[in-house]
Simulated assay, not measured.
Amino acid sequence: MESTNWPPEHSAALRELRVRGMSYGMIAATINARFNTAYTRSAALSRGQRMGLGCFDRPEPSLPALPDRPESPIPALRPSIDRTREVRPDARIEVLRWPKFFFGKTDLPELRCAGVSPRHLSLVELGPRDCRYPYGGDGENEPITFCGHRRRPGSSYCAPHFRLSRNPELSAKPVLSAGWLQAVGAD
């Protein structure tokens, strides 16, 4: 990070160039060329602001303004004042504006459970071959324990918890298609 204390000759050059009406980007480039420094536009702007030179008044643009467009020979189409426009409310806005309340009974899906009696091991007590299916931790300060039964090969869970955590229909499908494997040359 560069020091915020500029040498007096750099500050004098900044003041002189700013009085001439140069932009801070041009001032930084001029000072860098004159004193072999590496000030950025932002550094020159900040220093000018600290010196009270002003930073928000920009010089007039060097390009003249574009001339006004000639009027089109075709008259602009204006909507008729006599006819009214049909306004239809957007259905999406209505949904967002007026939430619907359902007071009927909703059937909850049947929860699946694994027919396993967990050993409730802590994380420290778990061995490398123990099931890591978590239990607890729902309430405040409730400890989280783990199943602890022997895990299924290739999984972090025992067989019942593995079946519980997977959708059986999706688990049967191969993850990578034969076409994809062939495309990457892994067949």
Rank of each mutant, 00 (worst) to 15 (best):
E86Q: 09
S117P: 00
P59Y: 02
R151D: 03
E142A: 14
R50E: 08
D90Y: 06
G154Q: 11
C55K: 09
D138G: 13
D187W: 06
P174C: 02
R151G: 02
P70T: 08
T4P: 07
E16I: 04
K100N: 09
G137Q: 09
L126G: 05
G104W: 04
C131H: 06
S171R: 10
G21A: 04
V184I: 12
P59L: 01
L123I: 10
F103C: 02
A186Y: 08
R34I: 01
F146T: 08
G136S: 07
Q182I: 09
P168T: 03
V184F: 04
N5V: 11
D90G: 08
P174L: 12
V184G: 08
R150M: 10
G127Q: 14
T106H: 14
I74V: 10
L176T: 15
L63E: 11
P143V: 09
S177I: 01
V19F: 07
L176M: 15
N141F: 08
A43E: 05
G185D: 01
Y157F: 09
A13K: 12
S155M: 05
P134G: 05
L181H: 02
A186W: 08
T4Y: 08
F103I: 00
K100Q: 13
P75C: 02
N32V: 03
R129Q: 12
S122N: 08
V184D: 00
R92H: 07
R50V: 06
R34C: 00
S156Y: 09
R69P: 10
R166K: 10
L96K: 13
